[in-house]
Write a protein that binds this DNA or RNA. Structure first.
Lengths: 138, 138
DNA sequence: AGAACTGTGCAACAGAAGTGCATTTTAATG
DNA sequence: CATTAAAATGCACTTCTGTTGCACAGTTCT
């Protein structure tokens, strides 16, 4: 049993061939991926399978969905300690307008905001847009 | 010349009948509107016209586009003093999961975030999700 | 082996966003 | 006021993402 199979198993996700491939693919990227990215990476892949796989991963707390403002949902693996399916891990995300990549800044949590009277916060999404580390060096 | 016509004129937007209607509609709402909302409000309206009208309004600084995480673009009128087409007015937005409305909290600016070395911020989007004022009273 | 369940593939649909082109409306000018 | 150029509008269509239903394949359990 490989590391990845163990990880899937720990999160109660049956480690099928496809799921392992998808997990491996995501683990190899340092930025969030869109469904279409995975689809293009393996040309044998079915959109539906990927779609449902990502949903399963998300439900089981293996990945989290990111809305970076591009109107395309992105996904990124959760950090080892992250329990975002129970208690949200509200880190912020950075979207580079140059290379179009979105990365998690897991060390940077969303600051607490005082809302007006009557408003109840349950979730938050903060995306910073600009130029990322590798693009700014050129 | 009405107030609205003056406002459009000041922003170099030709005040056509449709534009005045759209502006009036948005001014009457206290929450952000989607293109579909306007389409449904006037059944004579053409999607394309609305689409391009909103784009024009946005370019000329009459409205700002809001990405509230619903994957549907919303728009809201800019406040009188707002010059968000030049120098962004980074207030935050609140999306209510109950009534599905999105509102601007113009008094609440997005706090400054210290990014890691090499990252350059140009824009930011912060959306708080939860229960809004009027929904929490029931 | 057979039953029951889960995962996968195919086809199709829904909704939003966006484009090209012809026509109408508006503003500007003589 | 008639003419004309530019801007706005309406219509038809395309593309892309997300989503669902259903049938089939693969897995697990007894």
């Amino acid at each position: 049993m490989t590391e990845i199979e163990k990880t899937l198993h720990n999160k109660r996700v049956r480690p099928t061939a496809m799921r392992i491939l998808i997990y491996k693919y995501m683990a190899g990227k340092n930025s969030a991926v869109a469904l279409t990215d995975i689809e293009n990476a393996f040309d044998k892949a079915e959109r539906t399978t990927l779609y449902r796989t990502l949903k399963t991963f998300e439900e089981k707390g293996l990945v989290h969905q990111i809305d970076d403002g591009t109107n395309v949902s992105k996904f990124a693996l959760c950090e080892p300690g992250c329990n975002c399916e129970i208690d949200q891990d509200l880190h912020l995300h950075f979207h580079c307008g140059n290379c179009d990549k979105t990365v998690c800044l897991t060390e940077h949590k969303i600051p607490h905001i005082n809302l007006p009277q009557g408003y109840i916060a349950e979730d938050a999404n903060l995306v910073i847009k600009g130029i990322c580390e590798s693009c700014s060096q050129h």
